[in-house]
Nucleic acid binder design. Structure first.
Lengths: 324, 324
DNA sequence: CTGAAAGCGCTTACAG
DNA sequence: CTGAAAGCGCTTACAG
């Protein structure tokens, strides 16, 4: 491996001068820099990251931790984050939740973005003790000094979805829950309930799912294809998709027999039943805002500790006015 | 930051003994290890990765470089790779193509998996000079000592697809190319042509696309909805999907009026037209085989320099026997 | 403008 | 069984 020593020897300068030149220090005249750069290039010298990181106490790497890639996850967020980070001096590194603990503790990264529930709070607290900024996505902030939280506006989204079903004139409206107790599900149910309650005559039904496609599918099976409601708001798209698949098997027409709304506007939702009505999030924008805030924090700027990401109703082909 | 020195001081042992104990050396009695571990835990000591990497000349990180996340990329490969790596002492790190050069040169990783054309050959050669194993996916091997290549069996897949169309009795069969000159496209066209040629009476038509959905869509537009062929093999699913969308707009029924086959079996293909007929790849298995071979190489074992990943025809709802 | 030297936090022969 | 010391490859006050 060629080290800075080799460049020093070959160029006739000292190690310090080579280091200064290569890091573009003001104290080195351009001619010297040119000579040293030429030698470095000829020798194909590249600094050893471990040595540099050890000395600098920083890595210029930003860790982005996720659960996995299969399933309709939020790919556009990654690209939104990446587009911003890639234009900075930092480098984006993705890894799975189980690596977060190690990479944070061992200081392999300067900051983290965490988008998976699997990372324990204790890990985030450890990062905070190290002074490492952590951005948590769609997860409640723990109040730590260096922790920031960007969340989808689940409440508003669920309100829009439910209101749409109410406006369509359905009399009995169901909610298919995600994992009960999760922040996201709590918010979505709360909004659903609030809207239904403020419309006296409408009946509310609640079923329990777990955010997976199969839990949506299974609901139709459990009901044996006889749906005691005219519309359903599923706490996410995957369940809505499963639910619609179930309907197909029982010959239930969407949206003629039943209106279905999801949440998230995942990639595949446009292909479901000619388009799933859902709550849309500008994921790319969400990601780039997170990334920009993160860069600002690393830059010593002040940034809001909590942000909410706006959502909107995206009407497509799975909801319909009730034929009265 | 708490360092090994702090643990040494607090435990009453020397830095060397602490290091040996924490690394589970045989020379340290269990009682000593226990005492030192207890102190390390109480102090929340975790080794600094940069220092360890500098000394060890390795990082235990494996880099996986990709183009981006949007579009129907091969998520299952990532999970296949990850499932194997996560059960080893190594850690998987994903990053974008533009970071590959730096991370390889600066030795931030011990090995690389490259799944994007954007990484130049020179970078791979540099890794080879460093003795760093590199696995390239669906890309021609450059013959370097430490470079391994795992490729989809494009030729066989294209042969299966074309043969299916021939067996259905179509008389004029088209090929919609990907980027001409790319290895993948060359192979797929070669197979297409071989099959057509060996069936004397069938006519071959070739159109040029670029692997994007819009290039499939535009073909229908260019032909103004009048298709001078009865079946088409598109060099990938995205183009097939675009093509089918184009057909819908012109009122052309798939598969009644035209048979369409894609290649890759991307996630969304199951939702297209009741299911796109395509060439399927067991991506999870592909990924886990790559990862296993990589671990074997890092373990000093001998491994095939080139491997081909099998494919199979997946019949769904976009091809149909010609009504004669 | 340039260089000698200290030090980042580890690991590991080596000596005892 | 344990410790003193060298060294991994950089950066950066400091001195001249």
């Amino acid at each position: 491996m060629v080290t800075i020593k080799d460049v020093a020897k070959a160029s006739g300068y000292s190690v310090s001068t080579v280091s200064y030149a290569l890091n573009d220090s003001d104290n080195i005249p351009q001619v010297t820099k040119d000579k040293i750069w030429a030698v470095a290039k000829k020798l194909k010298y590249y600094p050893n990251a471990a040595a540099r990181n050890l000395k600098n106490k920083s890595t210029n790497n930003i860790g982005f931790f996720i659960s996995g890639f299969t399933g309709p996850v939020y790919h556009k967020i990654y690209d939104g984050v990446a587009s911003v980070i890639n234009n900075s001096k930092y480098h984006l590194i993705l890894s799975f939740s189980q690596n977060a603990k190690r990479m944070i503790r061992e200081r392999q990264i300067d900051a983290a973005i965490i988008m998976c529930p699997q990372v324990e709070d204790s890990v985030i607290e450890h990062a905070n003790r190290l002074g490492m900024p952590v951005f948590v996505l769609d997860r409640l902030d723990n109040g730590d000094e260096h922790t920031y939280s960007h969340m989808l506006d689940s409440y508003t989204g669920a309100k829009l979805a439910t209101q749409q079903l109410v406006d369509e004139g359905h009399q009995t409206i169901a909610y298919l829950s995600g994992i009960v107790g999760s922040f996201v599900d709590d918010e979505r149910y709360r909004a659903f309930h609030d809207v239904i309650s403020s419309n006296g005559s409408i009946q509310e039904k609640v079923y329990f799912g777990n955010f997976t496609e199969s839990s949506g599918y299974e609901l139709v099976q459990q009901l044996q294809g006889t749906l005691p409601f005219e519309a359903i708001f599923c706490a996410n798209d995957e369940m809505a998709i499963g639910f619609i698949k179930g309907c197909m098997e029982y010959g239930i027409s969407v949206p003629e027999d039943i209106s279905v709304i999801g949440f998230d506007n995942v990639d595949i939702s446009q292909y479901i039943n000619g388009g799933l009505t859902t709550i849309d999030v500008d994921q790319g924008k969400w990601g780039s805002e997170v990334a920009q805030d993160l860069l600002d924090v690393l830059d010593g700027k002040h940034v809001d500790k909590q942000k909410v990401c706006p959502v909107q109703l995206h009407l497509r082909n799975t909801t319909k006015k009730r034929a009265s």
